[in-house]
Deep mutational scan, measured.
Amino acid sequence: TRVETATETAWISLVTALHLVLGLSAVLGLLLLRWQFPAHYRRLRHALW
């Protein structure tokens, strides 16, 4: 049971790290898009909202 718990903890930390990385890359990508294509971003936002 001790090994299982350790594996579970490792998986949880791995998944958390993955989610953090994905979230950060998504935010960075959005910022980059907004910085590179302001007109396109505004049009996209206008279409979405």
Rank of each mutant, 00 (worst) to 15 (best):
T1V: 12
T1S: 11
T1G: 06
T1E: 11
T1W: 09
T1A: 14
T1P: 03
T1L: 14
R2H: 13
R2M: 14
R2S: 13
R2V: 11
V3H: 00
V3M: 07
V3F: 05
V3S: 02
V3I: 14
V3G: 01
V3R: 01
E4V: 11
E4T: 10
E4K: 10
E4P: 05
E4N: 11
E4I: 10
E4S: 11
E4M: 15
T5A: 01
T5I: 04
T5N: 02
T5G: 00
T5S: 01
T5M: 05
T5L: 01
T5H: 01
T5R: 01
A6S: 14
A6Q: 13
A6C: 08
A6I: 03
A6F: 06
T7R: 10
T7N: 13
T7D: 07
T7V: 14
T7W: 11
T7F: 08
E8D: 11
E8W: 02
E8G: 01
E8V: 00
E8K: 07
E8C: 05
E8Q: 02
E8L: 05
T9S: 12
T9C: 06
T9F: 11
T9G: 11
T9Y: 09
T9W: 12
T9P: 13
T9L: 12
A10S: 12
A10I: 07
A10V: 08
A10D: 06
A10C: 00
A10K: 13
A10G: 12
A10H: 08
W11Y: 13
W11K: 02
W11G: 01
W11R: 02
W11H: 07
W11L: 02
W11E: 00
W11N: 06
W11I: 06
W11T: 01
W11A: 00
I12H: 06
I12K: 13
I12V: 12
I12Q: 08
I12M: 08
I12F: 06
I12T: 11
I12P: 03
S13Q: 10
S13H: 08
S13E: 01
S13F: 14
S13T: 13
L14D: 05
L14M: 12
L14Q: 01
L14N: 02
L14H: 03
L14E: 00
L14R: 01
L14I: 10
V15S: 04
V15W: 02
V15E: 00
V15F: 03
V15H: 04
T16R: 05
T16W: 05
T16I: 14
T16G: 03
T16D: 00
A17T: 08
A17V: 11
A17M: 10
A17D: 01
A17R: 04
L18C: 02
L18S: 02
L18T: 04
L18Q: 03
L18G: 01
H19F: 04
H19P: 01
H19G: 03
H19Y: 04
L20D: 03
L20F: 13
L20E: 04
L20P: 07
L20Y: 03
L20V: 14
L20W: 01
L20R: 01
L20S: 04
L20M: 12
V21L: 10
V21E: 04
V21T: 11
V21D: 02
V21A: 11
L22C: 12
L22W: 03
L22R: 02
L22A: 12
L22H: 05
L22M: 13
G23C: 14
G23P: 08
G23M: 13
G23D: 07
G23R: 00
G23E: 02
G23W: 06
G23Q: 06
G23I: 14
G23F: 13
L24T: 06
L24C: 09
L24I: 11
L24H: 03
L24M: 13
S25E: 03
S25W: 05
S25G: 06
S25H: 05
S25C: 12
S25V: 12
A26K: 07
A26C: 13
A26M: 09
A26R: 06
A26T: 09
A26V: 10
A26N: 04
V27G: 10
V27K: 02
V27W: 10
V27I: 14
V27D: 01
L28Q: 02
L28N: 07
L28Y: 07
L28F: 09
L28R: 03
G29K: 04
G29W: 07
G29H: 00
G29T: 14
G29S: 13
G29D: 07
L30T: 09
L30W: 07
L30F: 12
L30M: 11
L31D: 01
L31F: 13
L31Q: 08
L31H: 03
L31K: 06
L31A: 14
L31Y: 13
L32P: 05
L32H: 00
L32Y: 02
L32D: 09
L32W: 02
L32M: 06
L32N: 08
L32T: 09
L33N: 07
L33F: 04
L33Y: 09
L33S: 01
L33G: 06
R34C: 01
R34W: 02
R34L: 05
R34D: 00
R34G: 04
R34F: 06
R34V: 02
W35Q: 15
W35A: 15
W35R: 15
W35Y: 15
W35L: 15
Q36Y: 15
Q36P: 09
Q36S: 15
Q36T: 15
Q36L: 11
Q36K: 14
F37A: 03
F37L: 11
F37C: 09
F37W: 07
P38H: 15
P38F: 10
P38E: 13
P38Q: 15
P38Y: 14
P38D: 15
P38M: 15
P38W: 04
P38L: 10
P38R: 15
P38C: 07
P38G: 10
A39C: 08
A39T: 15
A39L: 14
A39D: 12
A39K: 09
H40V: 08
H40M: 10
H40C: 14
H40E: 09
H40R: 10
Y41I: 14
Y41F: 15
Y41K: 08
Y41P: 03
R42Y: 15
R42N: 12
R42H: 12
R42T: 14
R43Y: 06
R43Q: 10
R43M: 09
L44W: 07
L44N: 05
L44Q: 00
L44G: 03
L44D: 03
R45F: 03
R45C: 05
R45A: 06
R45I: 03
R45L: 09
R45T: 08
R45N: 00
H46T: 09
H46Y: 09
H46G: 08
H46I: 07
H46E: 14
A47C: 13
A47S: 11
A47F: 09
A47L: 08
A47W: 08
A47V: 09
L48V: 10
L48R: 07
L48G: 00
L48N: 05
L48P: 00
L48T: 07
L48Y: 03
W49I: 09
W49P: 07
W49A: 02
